[in-house]
Computed example of a mutant assay.
Amino acid sequence: TSPATALNQPLESTEQVPASRLSALLGPNGRVLIVANRLPVTAKRHPVKKWEYPSSSGGLVSALQGLKDVQMMWVGWPGVSVPNETGQTVITEELFKRRCVPVFLDEELMDQYYSGYCNKILWPLFHYLGLPQEYKINKEKDIKSQFEAYTQANQMFAETVCKIYKEGDIIWCHDYHLMCLPKLLKQYNINMKVGWFLHTPFPSSEMYRALPNRAELLEAVLKADLVGFHAYDYARHFVSACISLLGLEGCLDGIQFDGRIVKVDAFPIGIDAQRFTKALEGPKVKEKITEFKKLFAGRKT
């Protein structure tokens, strides 16, 4: 069975997923398909069981644990490169039980797309560190090859989403790793409901204009129906970049683009407060609290 065929295979009964086909996850109002670089679980090789699936760490996973009564499906990289089809099939079937769909990226692509363009170009620029000096001197070819890998990876994410998409689903794309994704999804189905949320700052237009392919990325993001940021300043910087670099017009709700209004707004992410409150009652936490009380006894707080 190939990974693609596994999409239509029955799922075993678990606490997370009903004992039925993947389509049974569709409620009357569809699902939220969360598309991010990493899945909430990581596939790891195990000497006995061959594979195990511990929870992934990261702010996105923690933030979305606060969502209640929402039928979700995750799409993302499983955290490991699996070159053979047999291994991919095993991982795909196991991740389906956890409401996850893997996007298998090989090591070379991950190096160029993730370690390269995402972490050496976008992340520093978005955090006002600018482009690394090594990329400013005769490195245009390197940036070009990394951007090609970036678009290729985004295309693979889009193809995976399209395989499981059902009418009524809402697709929620996350972070700077997937700026091309809204455009690619809309090319597949213009009626898809697509949102894109950035988990880092968005820099001022003066800083952003230093990025090669700056206009292409902005236009790709603007294919989303809703563009979200943590803070108002980040949303304002994005709108400013669209106005100054693309010559678009801003409005009260966002940006006028391609004959429609793209909603741009700030949506501060909180935490699952009940989860943290409940954790205070755990024996390990109580033990640590007692330890700290003894350690800091008599000191002013």
Score class of each variant (00 low, 15 high):
4 A>W: 10
4 A>D: 09
5 T>A: 13
6 A>W: 02
9 Q>F: 13
11 L>W: 05
20 S>I: 01
24 A>E: 10
26 L>R: 11
27 G>K: 04
27 G>R: 05
30 G>H: 02
31 R>I: 01
33 L>T: 00
38 R>Q: 12
39 L>Y: 07
48 V>M: 04
49 K>E: 09
51 W>K: 12
57 S>C: 06
58 G>C: 07
64 L>M: 11
69 D>G: 12
71 Q>D: 07
72 M>C: 09
86 T>N: 11
91 I>C: 03
99 R>N: 05
100 C>S: 10
100 C>I: 00
100 C>F: 01
110 M>W: 04
115 S>N: 15
116 G>I: 05
118 C>R: 11
121 I>H: 08
123 W>I: 08
127 H>V: 09
127 H>Q: 07
133 Q>H: 07
133 Q>M: 12
137 I>L: 12
140 E>G: 15
143 I>H: 10
153 A>L: 04
162 C>H: 06
162 C>W: 06
162 C>F: 02
162 C>R: 06
166 K>Q: 15
167 E>C: 05
174 H>E: 14
178 L>C: 05
181 L>Q: 06
181 L>F: 06
185 L>F: 03
188 Y>C: 14
196 W>V: 07
196 W>R: 06
200 T>D: 08
205 S>G: 01
207 M>K: 14
208 Y>W: 10
211 L>K: 10
212 P>K: 12
214 R>A: 15
218 L>G: 02
224 A>L: 10
226 L>D: 08
228 G>T: 12
240 S>G: 02
240 S>N: 11
243 I>A: 08
250 G>F: 14
251 C>Q: 06
253 D>Y: 08
255 I>W: 14
261 I>W: 00
270 G>C: 11
271 I>N: 14
282 G>M: 13
283 P>H: 05
285 V>S: 01
285 V>Y: 11
295 L>V: 03
298 G>S: 05
298 G>V: 05
